[in-house]
């Protein structure tokens, strides 16, 4: 089971800012370990965000995103107490979903 994300969401003047910190190795597939063997690629490929069960953001990622990625984005709408759900899926098929309520 992958480690949890940290999500913060704040609404102001009809715009919600969401900040997500994800726990992921994000291996590029180009690095080698100390014995010279290639470390297999392992990175997040898809990120989806939902506001009150409606998809509001979708992203496709690649190997160039850093380890433990931080993602911030703004969405129209949202009010204090609304639920924001973020899901990522990686190239191994692992997935993690976490949620928060807008502050």
């Amino acid at each position: 089971m992958p480690n949890p994300m940290k999500i913060r969401a704040t609404a102001k003047d009809g715009v919600t800012e969401v900040k997500v910190l994800m726990n992921h190795e994000m291996e590029t597939g180009f690095r080698k370990d100390s014995s010279g063997a290639v470390i297999p690629a392992w990175f997040i490929t898809d990120v989806t965000a939902k506001l009150k069960d409606k998809v509001v953001m979708q992203a496709q990622w690649g190997a160039s995103v850093s380890k433990n990625p931080f993602l911030a984005f703004k969405i129209k709408g949202g009010a204090a107490g609304d639920k924001v759900v973020v899901t990522w899926t990686d190239n191994k098929g692992e997935t993690r979903t976490d949620e928060t309520t807008i502050a």
């Binding site: 480690n3 949890p4 940290k6 900040k19 910190l21 726990n23 380890k67 433990n68 931080f70 993602l71 911030a72």
Partner: peptide, 12 residues
């Protein structure tokens, strides 16, 4: 600073 992954380690 805004997205310091240290937060993940704090939680852990």
């Amino acid at each position: 600073r805004d997205g310091n992954p240290a937060e993940l380690f704090e939680a852990q």
